[in-house]
Simulated scan of single mutants.
Amino acid sequence: MMLGKRLLLVTCLLGSSGLAHAEGDATKGKTLFSRCAACHATGSQNKVGPGLAGIIGRPAASAPGFRYSKAMTGSGLTWTEEQLDTYLAGPAKAVPGTTMAVAVPNAQDRSDIIAFLKTLNAQ
């Protein structure tokens, strides 16, 4: 019986991707986001980059009034937590031709930033 419970726990932790994802800390993510704030607002207003309110579940290149690169417009992405993680790890690798040049190489930092982004409601 104990083996069955362990197997269930491992299955839940791994999820459908087969990889365990660290749970992000939104408070730490808010602090880490300060390096993103030069280009991105936490509301719907656009800066050098698009506003990030409501980013989770939003199709890429869909912030009103923002001029996206052709690469991002043609990407067909939807910003899920997993897709944001991949993109933040290497924007140019995830979307060749994107204008975003800043990557977040640390997996826990990405997880924390994404946890913070999840708190931003569409405005």
Rank of each mutant, 00 (worst) to 15 (best):
V95L: 11
V48P: 04
Q123V: 09
Y87N: 06
G49Q: 03
T73P: 00
L32C: 01
L7P: 03
K118N: 07
G15Y: 00
A103F: 01
A60N: 03
S44N: 06
L7D: 10
L9D: 07
H40A: 06
P64N: 03
T98L: 07
S75L: 01
E23D: 10
S75E: 04
S69H: 02
N106A: 10
V48Q: 02
G29S: 05
V104D: 03
G97H: 08
R6G: 11
V104Y: 00
A53E: 12
C39G: 10
L7K: 04
G24L: 08
Q45P: 08
S44G: 15
T98R: 01
K93T: 09
A37H: 02
T98V: 12
G57V: 09
R58N: 05
M1Q: 06
L7A: 14
A26T: 00
G57N: 06
L52F: 09
R35T: 11
N46G: 05
T11P: 05
L120C: 09
K28T: 10
K118S: 10
A26L: 07
R35W: 08
S62T: 15
S17G: 11
M2V: 12
I56A: 05
V95I: 12
K5C: 11
V10T: 09
L117D: 08
S75G: 01
T99H: 06
E23T: 06
R110S: 11
A89Q: 06
T98M: 08
E82K: 03
F66H: 15
K70R: 10
K93Y: 03
L9A: 15
G4Y: 09
L120S: 08
S62C: 09
T99V: 13
W79Y: 08
S44W: 03
I56L: 14
G15D: 08
V48H: 00
M72F: 03
A63E: 07
T80Y: 08
D109S: 12
G65N: 10
M2Q: 06
S17F: 03
A107I: 14
A22W: 07
S16H: 01
L3C: 04
P50G: 01
T31N: 04
L120P: 15
A101P: 01
E82H: 01
G97V: 12
W79Q: 07
E81H: 01
Q123G: 14
R110Y: 07
Q83A: 13
P96W: 04
L84D: 09
P96E: 07
R58P: 07
A22Q: 15
L120A: 05
Y68I: 13
S75Q: 00
L14W: 05
I113P: 13
P59K: 09
K47M: 11
R58S: 12
E23A: 10
T31I: 15
Q45I: 14
L32H: 03
E23K: 07
I113N: 03
A107G: 06
T27N: 10
G18D: 13
V10N: 06
G24R: 00
V104S: 01
R58D: 10
M1S: 13
V104P: 07
G74H: 00
T86P: 01
L8P: 11
A107C: 03
A107F: 08
L8E: 14
Y68K: 01
G49S: 04
G74R: 02
Q123C: 06
C39L: 07
K28L: 14
E23Y: 00
